[in-house]
């Protein structure tokens, strides 16, 4: 049933497509970090209307499927004259969707800093930017690194959805090969193994990191 020769013959093609998968993950992740930070700051805004509106948007994006959001970006925006390549639309979809999760991570990270720290920076007469960069963020970031890392892995595993908007990433490559040869077993199994190897090893790394961060605190 399983044909090693065939599997090896299609392996290079699949691994070549991995570049697309990895770069979509990477750029989507950067966008999610940036947007997530902005969202978490907006949610903390003093103007109640802003805070509420942003919260509502975050809820909506978080509670609707990424796949539909991808269709929306890829098919609806052109109606208004804005056309994206599949790769760009995919990065936008991934980045926007996961920014709502990351904003929550940032928010809880910021809230975990004891109130006393804010009083100390006031008492020591730090400026607002100094307070953030020197005192607050250095306390916020280390504990949330493992959580953020896990979202990176989650996003990586979500990239096959981009095949729905015609991006030829690793899964779509396997599907195209399969449709041509009527053999799906090898292609889809290789894709599964690639995902497993990369995400399992990364999550083990994150676990180790978590232990180390836990010890240093």
């Amino acid at each position: 049933m399983w044909n090693w020769d065939y599997a090896f013959s299609i392996l290079p093609q699949i691994l070549a497509a991995l570049k697309i998968t990895v770069s979509a993950t990477f750029f989507g992740f950067l966008l999610a970090l940036l947007l997530g930070l902005i969202l978490s700051i907006l949610i903390r805004a003093d103007i109640k209307a802003v805070s509420l509106a942003v919260k509502g948007i975050v809820q909506f994006i978080r509670n609707t499927p990424l796949l539909v959001q991808l269709y929306f970006i890829f098919y609806v925006f052109p109606q208004f004259g804005i056309t994206f390549k599949p790769f760009t639309a995919g990065i936008l979809g991934l980045g926007i969707h996961y920014s709502t999760y990351l904003s929550e991570v940032f928010r809880s990270g910021i809230e975990a800093v004891p109130a006393g720290q804010w009083e100390v920076v006031k008492a020591l007469n730090f400026s607002q930017p100094q307070a953030w960069t020197k005192i607050i963020l250095p306390q916020v970031i280390p504990p949330i690194i493992p959580v953020i890392g896990n979202y990176l892995i989650t996003m990586f595993k979500e990239t096959p959805l981009l095949s729905a908007i015609t991006l030829v990433e690793i899964l779509q490559t396997a599907k195209i090969i399969g449709a041509g040869s009527f053999r799906y077993l090898e292609g889809f199994t290789i894709v599964g193994v690639v995902f497993f190897l990369l995400s399992y090893s990364s999550s083990q790394l994150i676990k180790k990191l978590e232990v180390r961060l836990g010890k240093s605190n």
Partner: peptide
Amino acid sequence: RGTSLLVQ
């Protein structure tokens, strides 16, 4: 957990 839902 380690492989993608769509792949599965």
